[in-house]
């Protein structure tokens, strides 16, 4: 990472810490904000958060690794999370899964070469009555079939 990038990130984290507070209870909110913007929380970002909140880096790492929506490695610009839980599974998740994989040329858990999309599975999205469902970033799409899923993925930048 370039020094300039590092400085910018530090400043950004500092303003987040100012916004949410230095108390431990602000940690998850700060991490969520970093994740939202950068699609991951880098080792540098984790250490900066730790430094500013006066906790140990490993504590930040521990929290990041606990929550499925936080990650330490860079991901694509868009994170697509297909629900793998029972109702969506029964409603045809597997077909959507296969088509999407074939179309994007990657497996679930991987990111497209152009960093456009990361495919992931997720557990119950609370859309069981309208499955299969998937999240594209924070937006939810329901009643998917292979065709609609591909259309949605093709539209995202």
């Amino acid at each position: 990472m370039l020094v300039l990038e590092k400085n910018a990130l530090s400043e950004e984290i500092e303003s987040l810490v100012n916004q949410f507070g230095k108390e431990r209870s602000a940690l998850l909110q700060i991490l969520q904000a970093i994740q939202r913007k950068h699609k991951h929380i880098s080792d540098f970002a984790q250490q900066e958060v730790a430094r500013m909140m006066e906790i140990h880096p490993v504590e930040v790492n521990s929290v990041v690794s606990f929550y499925s929506f936080l990650c330490t490695q860079p991901k694509g610009r868009n994170i697509v999370r297909l629900c793998q839980t029972i109702s969506c599974d029964m409603a045809g998740k597997e077909k959507v899964e296969e088509t999407v994989q074939r179309e994007l040329g990657i497996k679930f858990g991987q990111t497209t070469k152009d960093k456009r999309i990361t495919l992931e599975f997720t557990n119950c999205l609370g859309m069981c009555d309208q499955g299969p469902a998937m999240l594209v970033n924070e937006k939810v799409y329901t009643k998917l079939d292979p065709e609609t899923a591909i259309n949605i993925l093709n539209e995202i930048k």
């Binding site: 140990h56 490993v58 504590e59 521990s62 690794s65 606990f66």
Partner: peptide
Amino acid sequence: IDFQEVGVLEAIDR
């Protein structure tokens, strides 16, 4: 973390 407050080890992943 608590006893020595060095903070090297923590539970990772879930």
